[in-house]
Design a protein around this nucleic acid. Structure first.
Lengths: 301, 301
DNA sequence: TGGTGGCGATAGCCATAACCTATCGGACGC
DNA sequence: GCGTCCGATAGGTTATGGCTATCGCCACCA
């Protein structure tokens, strides 16, 4: 049974004439006759009564043609659905973002994408890098925005931007008036960090060279905002990425001070499975992120 | 787009593995790959993301496959419907019957068919021969039971039985005691007939040789039962087929008397469009009619 | 009654496409 | 590195679907 054959029987049922039906299907009359004969043989039922007084539908033919119409209608919807899915900038994009980026990038990014790709809503999954990798491999998300280095097999990445780190101290801390601070000056005892698992934590530790001992549990905050609050409360100092230090997040109780040159940075990228077919969607995300008015150094290419 | 291709993408979507899907579809893996590539090209959408970590459905693929399942389900129902229509003894048989046969044949015929072809209900159309022919040609009925001769192009007939005619007179009429009556003795003045259009009327007139003048309108009855009543009322005499003269219809006020040999008869047949595909159904009707316990001489073959 | 025209079926040929086997190429894992 | 797995590619063969030409049947008509 073929969709073609079903089209043919519907045409014959409507035209009640093999020749006219063949014309309508853009085939010769013998081709159509043969196809219908095939179908009748396969189904084991005569669908048409070929008489001198035109073509009549048998009782079975009536019902089969009716069902054939239904099949063809459903088949037509396949094409419609495919067409609607043809635009890579249409349809939900499931995007993972690490927690130290999401709250600072997404508000602006979502808004920028709303005009750049209005038919592409974002489905955001905020999670740690390791979890995002698993979700990405499993196909549960389409792409992830995270910090490099991120090496995983069958995963490709594109750098979005670099952002520097700054020391955040209480407003009344002696360092608050400093122009810059050397990495070596940081004291592990007073440094507040995110819990293990956050890549941002590791990046700071890497930048500073490993400290002798891990910070005590009490010296951890579960989010950058928690860390900022802890600093404001005088519990110590921390290091934050500058996207977390825009005027929007400024508060009088803390002060951010740059590092000495060369200032430590993190490189933010978008990652996807190699072979992911909607590269244009990722391109749109990347372009949107790079064009944001944030204290970042956008990558090119 | 092919039903085959749709089967393939559903298989791949379920197996998430081209090789296994191919095996399930009883084709080689390259064949399946090529078919899917074809479909993707035709639809203009990548349906699957071929990755090292197995095969993933794209967003569009998800929706297309879902729709493909629907198409295949509907296509499957075509076969089911065809199968249910494969038995020629199943499904309504639309049967036309002339008014001078219907009331005497159908009660027994319907009952006989109920056991011979229990899945074949009859849809009865009672009408004059000329109208039945039109309905038959138009395909509004499948077959007709009527009296021969019935010559029409593209129509075939099969004789069911012969039945003789008898003279019906009031019980107190002098002829009521006769053993038989010669055709020539009939008097057009006292003969009650059906209206013009009934073949039975013509058959009587033919058997008697044309009378000089047509009977007056008052000497007509619209059905054989009306004619019988008119005879009982003493309005005259008539001629009826013997199937209308079984004990079931006997009444003491009239008496039926045979004709002299050779007795006039009518030949009852079933007619259908040449090419009508459910000949077995007609055969069942014919066999049922011939086997009835009626005062008929059943035809053979 | 023989001719004519309409219609679906048949015959015979051809091109395409569908399928097969064999092989490739990339990627992962030991 | 080397083997293995998996989908893609290459090349050849078959079968399917399509075409033209023609047939056979029947109704209609002169």
């Amino acid at each position: 049974m073929t969709l073609q054959e079903l089209k043919y029987i519907v045409a014959v049922a409507e035209e009640k004439h093999f020749g006219h039906a063949a014309e309508r299907c853009f085939v010769s009359q013998p081709s159509l006759s043969a196809a219908i004969r095939n179908l009748e043989d396969e189904l084991g039922v005569k669908l048409f009564e070929r008489g001198k007084t035109g073509v009549l539908l048998t009782d079975a033919g009536e019902r089969v043609v009716e069902q054939a119409r239904r099949v063809l209608a459903e088949a037509g919807r396949v094409k419609t659905i495919a067409k609607s899915g043809r635009n890579p900038l249409a349809g939900v994009l499931r995007l993972g973002v690490i927690p130290t980026i999401a709250p600072y990038l997404l508000p602006d990014l979502v808004q920028a994408l709303r005009s750049a790709a209005p038919q592409m809503p974002l489905d955001i999954e905020e999670n740690l890098t390791a979890n995002l990798e698993a979700l990405l491999r499993a196909g549960s998300i389409d792409a992830a925005i995270l910090a490099l280095p991120f090496d995983a097999p069958s995963i490709e990445t594109l750098t979005l931007y670099d952002e520097e780190f700054q020391v955040v101290v209480p407003a009344k801390h002696p360092w608050a008036k400093r122009k810059s601070i050397a990495i070596g000056e940081l004291d592990p005892v007073s440094l507040l960090l995110l819990p293990v698992g956050h890549c941002f934590r590791n990046q700071i530790l890497d930048a500073c060279g490993e400290f002798a001992s891990a910070p005590a549990p009490g010296r951890q905050g579960n989010s950058l905002e928690t860390l900022r609050s802890m600093v404001a409360s005088g519990l110590g100092m921390t290091v934050l990425p500058v996207t977390a230090l825009t005027p929007r997040h400024a508060q009088s109780l803390v002060k951010a001070v740059p590092f000495d040159e060369p200032r430590p940075i993190r490189r933010v990228a978008i990652a996807w499975r190699s072979g992911f077919p909607r590269l244009a969607a990722l391109r749109a995300v990347a372009d949107a992120a790079r064009g944001l008015k944030l204290p970042i150094k956008a990558a090119v290419g």
